[in-house]
C-alpha cells in the first residue's frame, strides 16, 4: 500500500554502560503520518528519537530514516529531517530573525528561498511583529513555535519532535498541534513524543514504550477497542463493556509490562 517507510527500525538497542535504555525495538513509520511516541519517564523515548535524528549511535540493530542508515549515514539523515529537542535550544541572545537566518544557513537553504522561508516561519509562528525581539524575551509558547519553524526551514520530509509542548499552556499547545497538522497535511511525516493523553489522541498511530521496550503499537481507536473492560454501570448495576480512556489503556499497559522504571 505505502511507498518506502519514512522510518524503519529493526531490533534496535542502545545501552549506556550497563543501562539498557532501548531494547530490541522494531517499528515502521509511514510517510505523512503523525506518529505518537508515548511512555513514562525513562522509557527510552528520547534515546530512540536521538538515534533516529542521528545524534546517538545504536548499540545494535538496524534503522533507516528517509532511506538512510542511522549507523553510517547520519549526515544524509540530518539534511532531510527537522529536529526539536526537549529543551528549548535556540539562541536566547539572538533575535527571532537572527535565529531563523542562522538555521537557514546551517540547513543550506538557498539564498533565493531564504526570504520566503523566513516570512513563512514568521507568519506560521505568529511572530511577524516580534521579528526583532530577542528570543529569550519571548513567552514559552512562542519560543516553541519558533523552534518548530527553525526545524522545518529546509522543508524536511520528516520531523522529529521530542516533547515539544511540555510546560506550555493549553491554548499554545492547541496552536502548536494545529501547526503539526498543517505540516502533516502538506506531506511531512511527524514523529512526536508526548506526555499528554489528549495529544496522543491527535496522532494517527501510537507507539507505547516502557522500560526500553515497545509494548503496544496501534491507532488510538484500536488501542482503546482492545482494552474494553467490563465495568459496573448504570442504575441497575449491570456489567457493561465500556470504552476506556487512552489514559486508562496507557496505565494498564504499563502496569502489565512491569510498571515504570524508577529513577
Amino acid at each position: 500500500m505505502s511507498p518506502k517507510p519514512a522510518v524503519r527500525i529493526e531490533r534496535l538497542s542502545k545501552s549506556f554502560g550497563a543501562f539498557r535504555a532501548v531494547e530490541d525495538v522494531s517499528f515502521e513509520v509511514h510517510p505523512g503520518e503523525v506518529f505518537g511516541f508515548l511512555g513514562p519517564n525513562g522509557a527510552g523515548k528520547t534515546t530512540t528519537i536521538k538515534i533516529l535524528a542521528g545524534l546517538l549511535r545504536p548499540t545494535s540493530g538496524r534503522g533507516e530514516v528517509a532511506g538512510f542508515d542511522v549507523m553510517r549515514e547520519t549526515r544524509e539523515i540530518k539534511r532531510r529531517i527537522g529536529y526539536m529537542s526537549q529543551l528549548f535550544s535556540l539562541y536566547a541572545d539572538l533575535t527571532v530573525e537572527e535565529n531563523i537566518s542562522f538555521f537557514a544557513g546551517l540547513y543550506g537553504v538557498a539564498s533565493e528561498r531564504r526570504a520566503a522561508r523566513r516570512d513563512w516561519v514568521l507568519s506560521m509562528a505568529g511572530l511577524g511583529e516580534h521579528r526583532r525581539r530577542l528570543t529569550g524575551e519571548l513567552s514559552l509558547g512562542w519560543k516553541q513555535r519558533l523552534a518548530l519553524g527553525c526545524a522545518v526551514l529546509h522543508e524536511p520530509p520528516i520531523l522529529f519532535l521530542d516533547e515539544p509542548t511540555s510546560g506550555v499552556d493549553p491554548i499554545s499547545r492547541r496552536n502548536f498541534w494545529d501547526l503539526i497538522y498543517s505540516l502533516a497535511d502538506a506531506g511531512t511525516t511527524v514523529f512526536v513524543t508526548t506526555h499528554y493523553m489528549e495529544e496522543a489522541e491527535y496522532c494517527n498511530r501510537l507507539a507505547l514504550m516502557n522500560r526500553g521496550r515497545l509494548i503496544a503499537l496501534d491507532t488510538p481507536a484500536g488501542l482503546r477497542a482492545a482494552h474494553r473492560e467490563p465495568i459496573l454501570e448504570g442504575r441497575e448495576n449491570r456489567l457493561e463493556m465500556v470504552e476506556p480512556s487512552l489514559e486508562d489503556v496507557f496505565i494498564s499497559l504499563v502496569r502489565d509490562a512491569g510498571g515504570a522504571r524508577e529513577d
Binding site: A53, L55, R75, I81, F88, S89, A92, F103, Y107
Partner: peptide, 13 residues
C-alpha cells in the same frame, strides 16, 4: 550549557 549544542548536532553542520 545553554543546550544549543544539541540543536547544532541535529543540523548538517
Amino acid at each position: 550549557e545553554r543546550g544549543t549544542m544539541e540543536q547544532l548536532a541535529a543540523t548538517p553542520v
